[in-house]
Amino acid sequence: MSPVIVCLVKEVKILNSPSLNSLMKLETAEIEYKKLYVANPYDNFKPVSTWQAFADQYRAKMKNPVKFPDQPLSDIRPRFFESEFFSQPVTHPEQNGNSNSKLIYPPHLNSEIVVFKHLRYLPIMEHTLEFVKISYVLNGHCKFFLNGKTYDLEQGDLVIVPPNLKQAFFCNADDDIVVNIIMRRSSFEDAFSPLLMEQNDISNFFLRMLYRREFSQLVLVHCDNDKEIEHIIFGLYMESQASMHGSQIILNSYVLLLFGQIIRNHADDATILEGNIDEQPVSNIIQYIRVNRKDVNLESLAQHFNLSEGYISRFIKRETGYSFSQLLRDIKMREAAKLLISTKMSIEEIIDKVGYTDVSHFYKNFKKIFGVTPAEYRQKGVGH
């Protein structure tokens, strides 16, 4: 473990030992939701996507009278967008009149990673996300709802939720603490590319998540009794709340450390939920293209996987939305972008390393994808 990472872990242990008490404090919305829940528990309600649908269920099953609010007590929507969490809010057509509702979380915008508590006693509200979410049961337990199934999660369980997957969490006790870590899909690929080069089920999951057009799998990892992961989660939460200078670098480091710890110690404890096994896992194909990007072509790719060129071409298009040439170009460009930031190699050396022979074509494609020249991209990355 590097000295920087060791220092991060030590800092978390020192600074965050009393943090659970602060997380236990009920938010205003939680207090009001708790009143509804105590009067008429809704553990067995069907998951819904709107406040009105919940209100209809609640009133139909209400046995004890209670004042029921006309409007939700927090942000309840069938879909949440990146712009609501990571930049100044904009209105999306899908919001259907909810653009005036104010997000309780996060406390800070203009960040690539945001960490916050899941509201306790929040009704079972199904929703989709435009971004990646990691949910960790820090204390107590919770229920997780996915495709008509209910999963009971215990302390130490961690769920990695990809974009566009309908799901819901439910916590029904004061000591149930679930911490959500959310990040842009694009930021995930840029900041955590080392994860994608690993050969394990979790890394393959991320590859499929990033490159498949339709993706309906998520990862459940049992990390019980892993104090290092608990400390990392505390560190992420506290750093996200502080929003100090350099926070983004520290948050990225914590997330890399989190995934490193999971891959090292809990790869065998990971379960893929609600997924279908492909005839040929697309992650294997993507990994092969990445490793052999300088020389690979459709013919050699098909030969390696013992498939016809027509079949593997259609398979890549169906699973990723990219043609083979588009996928190869994207992989080369993102590898070049990573090298521009993480090495002192000259641009000419990088062009050769990623497998381009036509320099002008490389510059044209790079600017098309990233909006700037390679030199500008490097300068911007170093500046941040």
Results as ranks from 00 to 15, higher is better:
H245N: 11
S243W: 10
C223P: 11
Q241W: 04
R264P: 03
I229Q: 01
L273T: 13
N276L: 14
L256M: 10
G275Y: 07
I262Y: 03
N225W: 03
L251K: 05
I272V: 13
M244I: 11
A270S: 15
E230P: 00
I277R: 11
G275A: 06
V255G: 00
L258W: 06
L236M: 13
T271K: 15
S247H: 14
G260Q: 09
D268S: 10
I249R: 11
L273H: 11
N252Q: 02
S243T: 13
D226I: 01
F234D: 09
I250E: 07
A242S: 12
L251E: 08
Q248M: 11
I272Y: 11
N276Q: 15
H266C: 12
N252S: 07
N225T: 05
L257E: 07
H245G: 05
G246P: 03
S240P: 12
H266G: 12
D224V: 09
I229M: 04
I262G: 10
I249M: 02
I272R: 15
A267P: 01
F259Y: 14
I262V: 12
N225A: 13
N252L: 01
S247Q: 05
M244A: 13
K227W: 06
M244F: 14
T271W: 05
Q248Y: 08
L256F: 01
S243P: 07
I272K: 12
D268C: 00
S243D: 15
E228T: 11
D268G: 02
C223E: 00
G235Y: 05
M238C: 09
I249D: 05
S253A: 10
I272F: 14
I233V: 14
S240C: 07
E239Y: 02
E239A: 04
E274K: 08
D278P: 07
E239Q: 14
H245C: 09
N252P: 02
E228S: 09
Q241D: 11
L236D: 05
I233S: 00
C223Q: 03
I232N: 06
G260M: 01
R264G: 01
M238G: 00
S243N: 15
A242R: 15
I233L: 06
N225V: 04
N225E: 12
A270I: 12
Q261V: 02
Y237M: 01
I249C: 01
N265P: 00
E239H: 04
G246T: 03
H245L: 15
N276I: 13
H245M: 15
A267K: 15
Q261H: 02
E230G: 01
N265Y: 12
C223T: 15
S253T: 08
L236R: 04
K227M: 09
Y237E: 02
S247R: 08
I233Q: 06
G260L: 05
G260F: 02
L258N: 04
H245K: 13
K227A: 05
L273I: 13
H266M: 06
C223F: 10
I232H: 04
I277A: 12
D268F: 03
G275N: 08
N252G: 02
I249L: 07
I272P: 04
N225Q: 15
D226M: 09
A242I: 05
L258F: 09
L251D: 05
